[in-house]
Computed example of a mutant assay.
Amino acid sequence: MTASAQSKNTPSRDAHVLLLAAGDIADCRKTPAETSNAALTATLVEQELKQVNQGFVVTLGDSTYPIGAFSEFRDCYDKTWGKFKSKTLPAPGNHEYGVPEAKGYFGYFGEAAGSRERSYYKKNIGTWRLISLNSNLKGTAMQEQIDWLKNELKNKDASCTLAFWHHPRFSTGGHRDNDFMEPIWRLLSSANIDLVLSGHDHNYERLAPLNADGERDNLKGMRSFVVGTGGAKLTPMFFPRAMTEVRQNEVHGVLKLRLFKASYDWEFLPVSSTNFSDRGQATCH
């Protein structure tokens, strides 16, 4: 299967920042870290980072299995993706909360993960603003995150914005849509955000640009990716929908994003030879 997307305006080939993203990563319950699928995806990341001056790694939650204990980070994640720790922008998944208050996650990533009290943050890189959100929050804690996000989106300090968290708002993977993320999705949509990344479903899916209601909008819609292919066992998918542009659950890999001044391009990098490919490019809103 192959797929690509091309904007009408070809992005300029100027200086860029590299992002490598995946979620659902390190599981050493049956395989030592050194021979795990997480080690294979880590090799891809390492090869790509060596080729650029400025590169970052984005984790989309469920960095370790089964419960996100600090020992799992130390003995499994750290031996694979840990080599990029200083360049990693993390987001927590539900498995991190297998330990109360996700203490393993916050203990491992430290200040890079924000804090247990405010587990969401932003980072400006060049002309891009990256926003890490916590999709595990509920009640008052979730509302506080939404209020923070509202204020953050008022700032016009970047020409392009990418948001990332664990539970996808829309997905045809085994977990399907996550309606509790609708308020955040609508808020981001109203601010004309460009890109959204999530994990949770153990597959790769690129969705069409969607508006606040999940309807295709090629002009102002947000393009989103589900990248749950970081190393954990891949899982079945439901039938594709009209919003699905491309998807696969046959090979692990990472999403490569190149962020230019007012545009971006993407490519799925598989860990092994496959007939599947996905690459494309677009301009920011």
Results as ranks from 00 to 15, higher is better:
Trp185Phe: 15
Leu40Met: 11
Leu130Gln: 03
Leu60Cys: 08
Ala26Asn: 02
Leu188Asp: 12
Glu152Arg: 03
Asp213Met: 15
Leu149Ala: 04
Glu117Met: 03
Ser272Ala: 10
Asp24Tyr: 01
Val226Tyr: 04
Lys138Glu: 12
Cys284Arg: 00
Asn155Ile: 07
Tyr105Glu: 05
Val254Lys: 06
Pro100Leu: 05
Val246Leu: 09
Arg74Glu: 15
Thr172Lys: 05
Gly126Phe: 09
Ile184Glu: 11
Leu207Ile: 14
Tyr120Cys: 04
Asp213Tyr: 14
Gln145Glu: 10
Ala113Trp: 01
Lys138Asp: 05
Leu153Glu: 08
Glu144Val: 00
Leu219Arg: 15
Gly93Ser: 08
Cys160Gln: 09
Val57Asp: 07
Met181Tyr: 10
Phe238Leu: 00
Pro270Gly: 04
Gln51Lys: 11
Arg216Gln: 15
His285Gly: 11
Phe225Ile: 12
Thr35Gln: 07
Arg13Phe: 06
Lys85Trp: 02
Ala3Leu: 07
Pro92Tyr: 08
Ser63Arg: 01
Pro209Leu: 13
Phe180Gly: 13
Ala15Leu: 09
Ala5Val: 09
Ser71Gln: 11
Gly280Met: 01
Thr161Ile: 12
Asn178His: 15
Asp75Ser: 12
Ser277Glu: 06
Asp177Leu: 12
Val52Phe: 05
Phe268Glu: 03
Cys160Ala: 06
Met142Val: 04
Met222Thr: 13
Ser36Ala: 11
Arg241Ile: 00
Tyr204Pro: 03
Ser277Asp: 08
Ala232Glu: 14
Asp75Ile: 09
Pro236Ser: 04
Thr274Gly: 00
Leu137Ile: 03
Lys79Phe: 03
Met142Gln: 14
Asn136Lys: 03
Met243His: 10
Trp128Lys: 09
Leu40Ser: 08
Val58Arg: 03
Pro270Arg: 02
Arg129Phe: 02
Met142Thr: 00
Leu60Asn: 02
Ala38Val: 09
Leu18Cys: 06
Leu234Phe: 08
Leu219Ser: 12
Ser190Met: 14
Val254Trp: 06
Pro92His: 03
Asn203His: 15
Ala163Ser: 10
Lys87Gln: 14
Gly68Asp: 04
Lys50Val: 05
Trp128Arg: 10
Ser63Trp: 01
Asp177His: 10
Ser189Gly: 12
Phe164Pro: 02
Val251Phe: 01
His285Gln: 14
Gly107Ala: 06
Val58Tyr: 05
Gly61Asn: 05
His95Trp: 11
Ala141Asp: 08
His16Val: 03
Leu130Tyr: 09
Pro236Thr: 04
Pro183Gln: 10
Phe180Trp: 15
Lys85Asp: 02
Lys156Cys: 00
